[in-house]
Amino acid sequence: MSQVAPHLPHKGGGETNRYATPAPSVEAVRRMLRLNGVEVADTFAEAFPMAAARVVVTAASAEWAMTAARAATGYAASVIGCDAEAGIEWELPPEVLDATPDGRPGVSLLFFAFSRDALQRAVVNRVAQCVLTCPTTACYNGLAGDPDRSIRVGGNLRFFGDGWQISKFLGGKRYWRLPVMDGEFLCEDVFGTVKGVAGGNLILLAESQAAGLAAAEAAAAAARAAGGVILPFPGGVVRSGSKVGSKYKALRASTNDAYCPTLRGVVPSELPAGANAAYELVIDGLDLAAVEEAMRGAMVAASECPGVVKITAGNYGGKLGPHHIHLRKLIEAG
């Protein structure tokens, strides 16, 4: 009575798994790109232009400035699902002379969006909900941009003052003072924007999750040190890299199965032998040079970490983004 399942062809033992990573040819090994002994894929990261703004948030203490900064840049990992990509560029300690316009501790934030209009909406909403509301803060423009390409931030928030807002015009800049319950919220009227570069990225393939994470942390720190960049994902490290499209029609993006270790052997995998975890760094910068410098620093830092098997980058075949950042050029430039 029992039905015997038909015999499934056994894939192991001499037969080749059609999804297994092919061994590199001798020629390929000879031409292989290496950095501190770690293999680097001869590929490129594909990046896009995005409108960018720099917002300087200050407060009575570094802690409150950071609280406002974290809130204002929260839920801003990717424009796939958020109104903007945002992150903390660096802290501006008061010990550094003239680091902030009012001499108080501050944090510099970068915001990226697909258009200037979208950027203005995102920055105004985020400053309104997360900075204006936060005790003792003030908010300044951090980019000397072209006045024709600026976004209006304080000029939109001023209406919260219900007629009691006060404008101050000083040194060619307009500021708005809004009466709030702990005194005044001070916000610059317009903020400059530049055409930034978003989507710079690196993918680190490592022997284990722990080794990969340690390398990703080191790489993220090195990338941030370049300045003029943010890593918009939590902690600067992405564990759920995505590919374009999905089997589900409603979804525009889905998990990047080629880098999922649990799917090796089931789907065409990009993971070489010995790699059991992958982490991605996504880098947005005020210009291409900043993104390149950050990627270069991150690659060097990652290559110095134990357990890193390979460093590669994500692209869409070069069809979508105008900026192709070749890892080979980054290494050769360094």
Binding site: P101, Y175, G183, E184
Partner: peptide, 9 residues
Amino acid sequence: PTFLELYQA
């Protein structure tokens, strides 16, 4: 007032 710091600068 924070704005006075801007004037001081």
